[in-house]
Simulated scan of single mutants.
Amino acid sequence: MTIYSLYIYDRHCACVYYHDWHRTKPPRVANEGGGILPAVSHQIYPRKDGAALDTNPRNTLMSSSGIIVAVNDEVPRTPLPGATQQVPANAGLPFDEEAKLVYGVVLSLRNMVKKISGKDEGFVNYRTSTYKLHLYETLSGYKFIMLSDPNADSLRFVMRQIYAGPFLEYVVRNPLTQMDSKESGIDNEYFRTSIDRMIRGLSVFN
């Protein structure tokens, strides 16, 4: 059993945080104008320089012409003429479409559960043959969504710990973080590092 990914949505239905661990299909870079906030994740925000997507930061062969270009890792790359974005063969949907689909599924299932079962019954998870989706919603409207192995037990307690621990400590109580600004995701490396450490320490992670 393992954990695949974590999404956090705010009260405006916008994805403000994303983290993955064991995905077989990595997300593609979000489309320009797709509505994805900056700082949601380092790997899915559109590249402003138009440079080719390169999974190896030290790869110096920039084109099929055989021209070797010296690259400094700290300097933004300038794409060669005719360079196109290289997308891994097993890459999934662009992240902006993926984030909308995940939120749409949760919203639809939650509304269906409320209509069928009444107000006392809440939607907390569902399972398919390949994954299990877990939902934890806070009173302030934030939705924590986690995808895991289909045989995993409920992970609501994990998302509750994330909310009561790193989220309150590094996001809510951080005066430098603008809540509901609609301008940026959760740009806090302490928060990201704390979540990564917490998830990797779970027995279900391996």
Rank of each mutant, 00 (worst) to 15 (best):
S117A: 15
L176D: 15
P88N: 14
A89M: 02
P26K: 04
T128P: 15
Y131L: 14
N56I: 02
T60G: 01
I36T: 10
A14N: 09
D149Q: 10
A52F: 01
R192V: 07
H134C: 08
A89R: 01
I67E: 02
V204L: 11
R77W: 02
C13S: 06
R47V: 06
K48R: 09
T177Q: 09
C13I: 08
D96L: 01
D54V: 04
V204I: 15
F123D: 05
I186F: 12
M146R: 02
N174T: 01
Y4Q: 14
E74F: 14
T2R: 07
K25R: 15
V102W: 00
R160P: 03
R58G: 02
A51C: 12
H134N: 15
G34I: 14
D73Q: 09
P27A: 10
N72F: 03
Q85K: 12
M198H: 14
H42C: 11
P76M: 08
A39I: 05
D149Y: 08
Y18G: 00
S108F: 13
Y4K: 14
S154C: 05
L107F: 15
E183Q: 10
G122R: 15
T130I: 08
D54P: 00
M146E: 04
I186A: 07
A91M: 08
F205I: 06
R160W: 01
I116Q: 06
P27S: 13
D49Q: 08
R200A: 02
H42P: 11
